[in-house]
């Protein structure tokens, strides 16, 4: 659809190293690669879902993409401009374009500020709006997330998880950004509330022409909302492609495992008994494919050389696997 348009956001070989450097005594500190060699592009109006288990580097990547953190190597381009440079130049200008919604709604709202104070800050500090204009926008924003005006003078702890997350979304929305990075926005919520928030996000995207980066550890949630999905494992992309394709014809064994593990009403869960669910030790990373220890198809090659992300048999579908699972899943 948007083939021709320049991507809104582009990650080029993004890498984030934690803990490197030296101690006061000059001893090198152990380093962890939280994110490594991640490249992808997001077009305007698209929703890219990123899935992976906790600790796989999703949040680290998300913070880099929102300008809250800097990549140790590689580059992020936002509308063709280097994001890191833009952040150094003027963080506020970036925050007007890119916003972020955090996982835990209560922890992302200052407990000592009223909802009004929280929502007015971006209107005043980012957009420099005057009193009247602010008030108008405030009403519009809380209306968009289905909150009522009387909620404005309450404190965050007076709200349920779902309401608090709607306030957090309203805060992100207030400055009318182009891109919103959503880091596990529904993981802390009940399923019933989760559905409300997902529908709201869908609605807002259409109304305000937003682009989302939607992060979650739950494949089913990602599927309901995303156009494209990237599967992350141990800091790298295992697979990326159109949502439909990833769910019906996964080309990485980790994606396959995620699909098999996903619960659903009436579905008996069947994961292999041998499956340990343990990630490799980040201080002692494996040489080859990080999933080899858990993979039913792993061989010598997998254990010795790292598989690169390569075309996986359909347009825009890439996977990093030497012996991809064949056939399609029952999830059609």
């Amino acid at each position: 659809m948007h083939e021709q348009t320049e991507p809104m956001l582009q990650a080029q070989d993004v890498e984030r190293l934690f803990g490197a450097g030296r101690t006061l005594l000059g001893r090198p500190k152990p380093a962890v690669h939280a994110v490594q060699g991640v490249s992808f592009a997001v077009r305007k109006g698209e929703i890219l879902g990123i899935v992976g288990e906790s600790g796989c580097g999703k949040s680290t990547l998300a913070r880099i993409l929102a300008g809250l953190d800097q990549a140790s190597a590689g580059k992020v381009l936002f509308q063709g401009q280097d994001l890191a440079a833009a952040v150094r130049r003027d963080f506020k200008a970036v925050a007007r374009q890119i916003q972020y919604v955090f996982q835990d709604p209560l922890s992302s709202l200052n407990p000592r500020k009223t909802v009004r104070a929280i929502l007015e800050t971006p209107l005043r500090r980012l957009l420099g709006l005057g009193r009247e204009e602010r008030e108008r926008r405030l009403q519009k924003v809380i209306d968009a997330v289905n909150l009522r005006p009387e909620h404005l003078d309450r404190y965050p702890h007076e709200f349920s998880g779902g309401q608090a997350q709607r306030i957090a979304i309203a805060r992100a929305l207030a400055a009318e950004p182009k891109l919103i990075v959503l880091d596990e926005p529904v993981s802390a919520l009940d399923v019933s509330v989760q559905a409300q928030v997902l529908n709201l996000l869908d609605d807002l995207k259409a109304r305000f022409g937003l682009t989302y980066l939607f992060i979650s550890h739950d494949l089913a949630v990602v599927e309901t909302i995303s156009d494209r999905v990237a599967v992350m494992y141990f800091g790298r992309l295992a697979e990326i492609g159109p949502a439909q394709r990833i769910f019906t014809q996964p080309r990485h064994h980790y994606t396959r495992l995620l699909l098999d593990s996903a619960p659903a009403p009436g579905k008996a869960i069947m994961v292999p008994e041998s499956e340990s669910g343990e990630l490799p030790d980040p201080y002692n990373p494996p040489v080859g494919c990080a999933f080899a220890a858990r993979c039913p198809a792993a061989d010598e090659l997998c254990r010795t050389r790292h598989p690169a992300l390569e075309p996986a048999g359909a347009p825009k579908h890439l996977a990093a696997c030497y012996h991809p699972p064949v056939g399609s899943t029952a999830h059609e």
Binding site: Q194, A220, T224, F247, A262, P265
Partner: peptide
């Protein structure tokens, strides 16, 4: 309200 894979 439970999202089910394959019914995205």
């Amino acid at each position: 309200c439970v999202p089910v894979l394959g019914q995205g």
